[in-house]
Computed example of a mutant assay.
Amino acid sequence: MSLEELIPSNQAKSFLYCFFIRTGLVLSTLVIGLSVPFFGLVMSLIGSLFTMLVSLILPCVCFLKILRGKVTRLQAALCVTIIMVGVVCSSFGTYSALSEIIKSLRG
C-alpha cells in the first residue's frame, strides 16, 4: 500500500502501476519462498517470537509503564499474568520451531 501511494492519481495509469506492483511483490515472495530451504519453519520461528510479543506482552508492559502509579493491584496482577502466559507460549512456540529446524537440518 505504501508503494501504491507514491503513484500519481491518474486513473488509467494508476491501475496498471498497482497491478504491476502487486504482481511483483507476489512473485518476489514466491521466489524467496522457493529458494530458502526452510522458509516455513523460519516463518514459524519468527511468528512464535513476535506474535506473542506484539499481541500479549508489549501491550501489558506499556499499560503498566504509562499508568505506573495509577494501576490497581488487580490490574497489575492481570497484566503480570498475561505477560507470563505470553512468555510461556512464546517459549513453547520458539522451542517447537527450533526443534523442527534442527530436525530438518539433521535429516
Score class of each variant (00 low, 15 high):
residue 77 A to G: 05
residue 17 Y to R: 01
residue 21 I to M: 13
residue 28 S to M: 14
residue 56 L to I: 00
residue 70 K to R: 07
residue 84 M to W: 06
residue 60 C to H: 06
residue 35 S to A: 09
residue 89 C to Y: 15
residue 60 C to Y: 01
residue 63 F to G: 12
residue 48 S to Y: 12
residue 40 G to F: 09
residue 74 L to H: 06
residue 72 T to G: 07
residue 83 I to D: 09
residue 63 F to P: 01
residue 59 P to D: 12
residue 43 M to I: 14
residue 37 P to W: 09
residue 1 M to T: 12
residue 86 G to S: 12
residue 68 R to S: 11
residue 49 L to P: 15
residue 91 S to H: 09
residue 30 L to M: 09
residue 96 S to V: 05
residue 59 P to T: 13
residue 8 P to M: 03
residue 20 F to W: 09
residue 18 C to D: 03
residue 8 P to Y: 05
residue 71 V to G: 02
residue 21 I to Q: 01
residue 88 V to N: 14
residue 73 R to L: 04
residue 26 V to N: 00
residue 100 E to Q: 13
residue 14 S to V: 13
residue 27 L to H: 01
residue 6 L to M: 11
residue 44 S to W: 08
residue 1 M to Q: 02
residue 1 M to N: 01
residue 7 I to H: 01
residue 71 V to M: 05
residue 27 L to P: 00
residue 78 L to I: 00
residue 31 V to T: 06
residue 1 M to P: 03
residue 101 I to T: 03
residue 65 K to F: 08
residue 3 L to K: 02
residue 34 L to V: 11
residue 100 E to H: 13
residue 105 L to R: 08
residue 20 F to I: 11
residue 42 V to Q: 07
residue 91 S to R: 11
residue 18 C to I: 10
residue 106 R to C: 02
residue 85 V to I: 11
residue 103 K to G: 04
residue 16 L to I: 14
residue 11 Q to D: 15
residue 52 M to E: 08
residue 49 L to W: 13
residue 4 E to G: 03
residue 9 S to N: 14
residue 102 I to W: 14
residue 66 I to C: 07
residue 102 I to S: 08
residue 17 Y to W: 00
residue 65 K to A: 09
residue 37 P to A: 15
residue 57 I to A: 13
residue 41 L to H: 02
residue 90 S to W: 03
residue 102 I to P: 15
residue 50 F to S: 14
residue 59 P to W: 04
residue 35 S to G: 05
residue 83 I to F: 06
residue 21 I to Y: 08
residue 4 E to S: 09
residue 60 C to P: 00
residue 99 S to I: 02
residue 36 V to Q: 07
residue 80 V to M: 13
residue 63 F to A: 05
residue 103 K to I: 00
residue 86 G to T: 08
residue 83 I to Y: 09
residue 93 G to L: 04
residue 28 S to L: 15
residue 17 Y to M: 00
residue 76 A to D: 12
residue 82 I to A: 09
residue 75 Q to N: 02
residue 24 G to W: 13
residue 97 A to R: 10
residue 53 L to A: 14
residue 89 C to M: 14
residue 35 S to H: 13
